[in-house]
Design a protein around this nucleic acid. Structure first.
Lengths: 168, 168
DNA sequence: GAAAAAGTGGGAAAATGTGTCATTTTATGT
DNA sequence: ACATAAAATGACACATTTTCCCACTTTTTC
């Protein structure tokens, strides 16, 4: 399974169109069809999924029992804003106005590959977000790995890191 | 298992390209493919991973449930700036502008082998960083080894003194 | 139905990335 | 110390990508 990586700086044109960077496009093509689904993120940013990834993701949500009110509320949230997109002949996607507004996108966005999806942030918001983290990162890392049943990253076999090794 | 070692002094050209030192290249080749992933370090420096090492690191992160916001924050922090790179025909890698800026790289960088990855520092920042250390180093070493369950490295075999033996 | 707004397509200019090579510097062996 | 080879650096030309702009079509609104 291919992996989407990279941090890209792009500008939105006056009509709200975003030209996908060539380097990212190559990676996206590895996921098959040139169709995407974009959606609101948990906080003010957007997530762009290759269609195949979205289908996989939404299949899980579809399976939730809608007669349970909390599930139904989650479903509603999950689908709120989800929009299918396909790039035009110049590899541009038109971002829905409501999502541009939600993410506070002005002119420049940062696109960050996140494995099987990409996040699209207003540049300023993105920089604020990652500049806040470092102080918290150690605690965040500990919490993250202890909340998962598996112990902290098992040292990968061939590349067993030395004792005292810390991510990343 | 190969190990990346050495401290190298290199210059970045006007386009932000870094020629990997020949001695380091040989070591990197031992990791397989000539593809890398570069990322922000915890403080203003960059980390360059052989692709295979990166894949091991990210495999653990991939498994986290992104609907838990703290997990997602961790993922984002982990991926922030991660960019795939492959050297050109002259064994140069093009450092992304955003990362050059992040690490405060001007003209000269220090590349430091760190077992399964290398750190890339702006030379000046690097010298400042290690010039701060020496006073702290003994304490740092103690803290490090007492916080780990394993004892400090056993003296290498040939010189392991027999019980009761006293060194000259 | 007319005017305005929004969406689409194309393309030129600027910016950026890439390949190649010549020159300088460093390392190595005699 | 010198000659030779290897590596590092700098410079340039070329290719690609990005951005910005304009004109046209479709949809919405009054």
């Amino acid at each position: 399974m291919p992996q989407l990586l990279g941090e890209y700086d792009c500008k939105i044109d006056a009509k709200g169109r975003l030209r996908l960077p060539a380097a990212l496009l190559k990676q996206l093509h590895a996921f098959g069809s040139p169709d995407y689904v974009i959606n609101r993120g948990m906080t003010p940013y957007l997530t762009l999924f290759p269609k195949s990834v979205w289908e996989h993701e939404s299949a899980k949500v579809k399976a939730l029992n809608g007669y349970i009110e909390r599930n139904q509320a989650f479903k509603r949230y999950f689908y709120r804003g989800a929009t299918p997109l396909e790039p035009d002949s110049a590899d541009r996607i038109l971002l829905p106005k409501s999502l541009i507004e939600y993410a506070g996108i002005k002119k420049t966005v940062i696109i960050q590959g996140m494995d099987d999806r990409v996040e699209i942030w207003d540049k300023e918001a993105y920089l604020n977000d990652i500049n806040q983290e470092p102080a918290d990162f150690r605690k965040l890392a500990e919490d993250t790995w202890t909340s998962v049943s598996t112990p902290p990253p098992a040292p990968p076999n061939p590349y067993n890191p030395p004792p005292g090794h810390v991510l990343p």
